[in-house]
Write a protein that binds this DNA or RNA. Sequence first.
DNA 1: CGGTTGATTGAGGCTGCTCAAAAGGTGTGG
DNA 2: CCACACCTTTTGAGCAGCCTCAATCAACCG
Lengths: 260, 260
Amino acid sequence: MGAVAPSPRPFVMTHPNGKEAAFPSDANALALKLERFFPLDRIDRLALDDLTRASEWVAPRKAILSEGDASETIVPLLAGLAYRHKDFRDGRRQILSLLVPGDICGVDGRPSGPIHYGVRALTRCLIAKAPPERFRMLLEDHPAIAGALRQASLVEEAVLRTWIVNLGQRHAHERLAHLVCELAHRMKDCRRLLSHGGFELPLTQQELGAALGLTSVHVNRVLQRLRAENLIAFQNGTMRIFDADRLRSVADFDPTYLSA
Amino acid sequence: MGAVAPSPRPFVMTHPNGKEAAFPSDANALALKLERFFPLDRIDRLALDDLTRASEWVAPRKAILSEGDASETIVPLLAGLAYRHKDFRDGRRQILSLLVPGDICGVDGRPSGPIHYGVRALTRCLIAKAPPERFRMLLEDHPAIAGALRQASLVEEAVLRTWIVNLGQRHAHERLAHLVCELAHRMKDCRRLLSHGGFELPLTQQELGAALGLTSVHVNRVLQRLRAENLIAFQNGTMRIFDADRLRSVADFDPTYLSA
DNA sequence: CGGTTGATTGAGGCTGCTCAAAAGGTGTGG
DNA sequence: CCACACCTTTTGAGCAGCCTCAATCAACCG
């Protein structure tokens, strides 16, 4: 993590331990994501830096947003991993999406009612909190950012639809394979791929199950099966991919929905 | 595609049989939906009428959009029911959403790549096709419409998340109950509720299964069970609800996600 | 009337769940 | 440094929700 003296990116300095240093948190993750959809100029990027200047760290496993919170504030995730989830009274839980740097935790739009899900940090997370007026002004003054955010939101919808397909139609091992493929792609896009092509994913098997609509017991068995087939290994919160081609074919994975 | 005389609502006249007359297709369904989110003035409404002037009927079971189509054109559904679906090569199929009048079949935003799903008419459908420049101008000139559309898209995302919860966590009978609850609400909003509180839903049991991630055989058994419990009856493409309260409690249904 | 599509029913089987217990790992406090 | 608590992973046994296959029935249609 370089000391970036004159740079307008305050969160570079907020860097307690060396863990995150493996990832390029010295680039504004939001800008990085938006540029995949639409080229931003220097002014746009400065505006984004400005918006995300007031940022804070959240400890692993802590709630970033809770069900029922107002959805006024826009909360981009600048570093770390998090997930959206919906909990039942009887203990059932569904993970709705996994959030990587550049994703937006809260509602990315107009004022709306309370949110119907919670957002929880998976690792230590750096988040910004942008008041809605600030955000609206940003959109008005920077059409490129507005356009890119719209694209990003279309992709997010596509991801939701893909999860529906996954949950509705695929068997457990296909489901897990598909999730791994999706995450590998998204991790690459936000530069969180490890050298061996895998990525950090500090989920318990129970949480993996909550994402896949499976029990932790079954997740365990499916993981063992995929490991035995030399496709992936999941240990110590790290997902390794041994045979990406075959994994893709098991998952019937088509990455186009992540970029179009 | 009606002859467009002086009236700003051409599709009123395009009324071949009396079937649809049971429903208020003489109000612009898109305007009706958007006004639930934000008040429109007369100018806004006229602009919507104008946008949807060039409309056409699609026969039941015909494709409205196909996977791979460009997502440039904005295609609002003005009358009738339709659904989005994703088909596998091996015959599996998942229904991604059910579309009611006022919903938008295609991508409701910026230019984007090809769509990853198909849209198929369930009943005879009236659709409009708005070229993207027209649409963009509409959004620029009518902030109320733009805001309402944004809200609508947030609700649509909430619906997708709810389907994920449904598929991931609920048992077959809860799942079906939840779907019925959701549809009852949405049908009411677009004024398609029948007098007895049920609604037309011309799905085969196979298609119901494709929406719920179940086989048609199991759907049949679940329907019988819910019928035996005096909750609902599904016959001749009509869903009847006998005990809305108990149905809601079986489904663990909370309607707030449909409006906020 | 034969042909086709969808609803219904039955039998049997597999995927994934439940319950339960053991094994590893980790942090805390004595 | 050990004992203990707690959590996660792993494994086993048994069960059941849902699926597959298949046959029958009902409705519609040319």
